[in-house]
Structure formats: structure tokens, C-alpha cells
């Protein structure tokens, strides 16, 4: 589903590569934690999957497409098959829960009938039933992240990228977030989650890929956060 072959990314004006000859294979339906300290290249990895950045060398395949050969014109179609969740939620403050989720479908031109059917289903899946008409500032951090997850998942993407989704949320609430991610993973969606949160990684017992200074130092199925140290 995601295939990195010897990928190197150096940002302009920086000597040290953000990713240094990284090769990784993520299969369909896998749940993968991407761990490592700040600046180890986790976010760069996610941005490369979305084709927000281009690698300096190496090949990236996502959902069967060679990103180097994917024209800019088709990048939006790639992104429709990838959902994204961030540490800072990125909700629209002037739209309620339902509208925030529906926005993702409106802007890719889905018919209104389809939106009316799917959005409540997804809101229920993330555990926000009955809160469809709340505004983001009336929700707790955990609830806001659930809205963000609903928005990422509403178009049934093949891949869900989560960049420190529990970074702004207390540990107790984080468990709920992880349950939702697990539920999404069980529908067959590949989940790739970058995180610092050792407790969560240890409790989930999923595949762990650890980056350090842009290199993969560990790739372990059913791993824990700090085993390499």
C-alpha cells in the first residue's frame, strides 16, 4: 500500500537529510506506528506519502501509484484516497461538527444526497452521536480530534495518516482516540501513525518503525516504544 524504496529527502538550506535512504513496505490493512524523537523525519515521511514534498532520490509508491510519475493534476485524486489527522485538529471554527465533516465531501463535489447519508454514519462511528450540531469550541480536545477523524475517514480512504493525533490530549482520552483508530483499521484501512506516546505504542502491540536522524533504526512487528534503547 505504501512502498518507500531508498528514499532520501534533503530540505533546501539544510545539510543533514530529513530522511536518509529509507526503505519501508506497509501492506494493505496494516497498523503501523512511526516513532522517534522530534526531527527524526516522521512528519517528512507523512508529507512524502501525500506528495506534499518530493524526494531527492528514491521511489515512492502509494496505493499502487508511482508518485514520481503522478502529474500534479492527479495529486488531488491521490489525496482523496488518503485521510489525514493532525495534532492540532484543523477544524473550521465557524462550522459545526456535521458541517466540518460534510465539508470534506462538498469540496470534492459529492452529491448532497450522498453526504446526508454518510456523514451521520461516520459521526456515529467516531462516537459523537448527538453532537452533530455542536461547534468545535463547545467540544473537548478528544471530541475535536474525533471530528477530525470523522472528516478524514468520511470518504473511506485506503490509508489514514495520523501525525501525533494524541499529542494535545490527556492519556485517558487518548485511549478513546486509539479505539477509534483501531475501529477504522478494522474496516480494512491502512493506518500510519506518527507518535511520541510510549504508553499508547506499548499498549497497542502493533508494528513499530523507529526513525532516528532520518534513518530507520528499528522495524518490528508487535513492537513497543522504547525497546531499542
Amino acid at each position: 500500500m505504501i512502498h518507500f524504496d531508498n528514499v532520501t529527502k534533503v530540505y533546501a538550506n539544510q545539510n543533514r537529510p530529513a530522511l536518509d535512504h529509507v526503505s519501508v513496505d506497509v501492506d494493505k490493512g496494516e497498523f503501523v506506528f512511526l516513532v522517534g524523537p522530534s526531527g527524526s523525519g516522521k512528519s517528512t515521511f507523512l508529507r512524502l506519502v501525500l506528495k506534499e514534498e518530493r524526494p531527492n532520490s528514491g521511489a515512492i509508491h502509494v496505493a499502487g501509484k508511482d508518485l514520481a510519475r503522478l502529474s500534479n493534476f492527479k495529486v488531488p485524486h491521490l489525496r482523496r484516497r488518503i485521510g489525514c489527522v493532525f495534532q492540532d485538529f484543523r477544524l473550521l471554527p465557524n462550522k459545526n461538527v456535521y458541517e466540518n465533516v460534510a465539508f470534506a465531501l462538498e469540496v470534492i463535489g459529492k452529491p448532497r444526497r450522498f453526504i446526508r447519508k454518510v456523514v451521520p454514519e461516520v459521526i456515529e462511528l467516531v462516537g459523537l452521536e448527538g453532537k452533530a450540531h455542536r461547534m468545535p469550541d463547545e467540544l473537548s480536545g478528544g471530541e475535536q480530534q474525533r471530528v477530525a477523524m470523522a472528516r478524514a475517514f468520511v470518504n473511506r480512504p485506503m490509508i489514514l495518516l495520523a501525525d501525533e493525533p494524541t499529542g494535545n490530549i490527556d492519556p485517558a482520552t487518548s485511549i478513546g482516540i486509539m479505539k477509534v483508530l483501531d475501529r477504522i483499521n478494522r474496516t480494512g484501512t491502512t493506518v500510519l501513525m506518527a507518535t511520541h506516546d510510549a504508553a499508547i505504542v506499548d499498549s497497542m502491540r502493533k508494528r513499530v518503525v523507529e526513525l532516528e536522524d532520518g534513518k530507520i533504526v528499528r522495524d518490528q512487528s508487535r513492537g513497543v516504544y522504547g525497546q531499542a534503547y
Binding site: L50, P76, I108
Partner: peptide, 13 residues
């Protein structure tokens, strides 16, 4: 903010 989200969810240019 809006355009950022539109980009992420794959709205066409």
C-alpha cells in the same frame, strides 16, 4: 485554513 483542508482532502485545483 479552509484551503489547507481542501488540499488535504483532495479538492481539485
Amino acid at each position: 485554513r479552509e484551503t489547507g483542508i481542501m488540499r488535504l482532502v483532495g479538492a481539485s485545483n
